[in-house]
């Protein structure tokens, strides 16, 4: 889902960069208000955690394996703003170290996975958590948010490719959405299991606005 260099037109990647820079600036400001000077070490270590978590392969149906993307996991545990920063830092590092996702496409990747994936996922999670309430709300919210965040991010990727004029939308969008419907199921199961574990062991670490 990481868009490499060369796929997006200058207009698309340029505006994605500007938009993402604005979003991250806002998130940094918000997180600083909550965490104060704990922010730098906490965000650094949490980014390393998500980075490591993405390297753990889970067995998926039929002998294949997949890994966690972690956007919604970060959002449920750390809140939307901190999660956006963590995912952004992970994306920058992946771009630099593994060349996973291009330099010019970094803005678009941040837009898809940090803003739409993690923050958008939190938005969905929060609505369900509030309406259902309690543990049931948290778990349902996590599952639905994790599943839909993967599809939203993949669809956004398809739309950006189409806007760049290199890929017809009628092919990219259905294929991307369809494939990620299955990837999303894996993401939802793993995210739920991890959140369920934290909920049993250290429920105080689940993000709540009041904290």
């Amino acid at each position: 889902m990481h868009i490499p260099d060369g796929f997006l037109s200058p207009g698309v990647w340029g505006s994605a960069w500007i938009f993402s820079a604005g979003v991250i600036g806002f998130c940094v400001k918000k997180t600083k208000q909550i965490l104060k000077d704990r922010m730098v070490p906490l965000m650094g270590v949490m980014s390393a955690f998500i980075f490591a978590a993405q390297m753990l392969n889970f067995p998926v149906l039929g002998g294949t394996s997949g890994h966690l993307l972690g956007g919604v996991l970060a959002a449920v545990l750390l809140g939307p703003y901190a999660a956006a920063i963590v995912i952004t830092v992970v994306l920058i590092t992946q771009c630099l170290i593994f060349q996973d996702g291009g330099l010019t496409a970094l803005g678009a990747n941040i837009l898809n996975m940090s803003f739409l994936g993690a923050m958008g996922g939190y938005f969905i999670y929060n609505i369900l958590r509030r309406t259902l309430g309690g543990v049931k709300g948290i778990m349902t919210g996590t599952a639905v948010a994790a599943w839909s965040s993967v599809i939203i991010a993949a669809s956004a990727c398809a739309v950006e490719l189409a806007l760049s004029g290199t890929t017809p939308l009628s092919v990219a969008l259905p294929v991307m959405a369809f494939v990620h419907m299955f990837i999303g199921i894996g993401e939802a199961i793993i995210t739920c299991l991890v959140v369920g574990f934290v909920l049993r062991v250290r429920p105080d670490l689940i993000y709540t606005k009041e904290k």
Binding site: R38, P41, L42, G44, V45, M46, A48, F49, A52, A53, L56, F58, L68, L77, I190, L193, V194, V195, G196, F197, V198, V201, R202, L205
Partner: peptide, 17 residues
């Protein structure tokens, strides 16, 4: 494996603190 990730999260959080 998921429990492992959960443990890893808690340990990482405590390490950050």
């Amino acid at each position: 494996l998921a429990n492992m990730l959960g443990t890893l999260f808690i340990r990482s959080y405590e390490r950050a603190e």
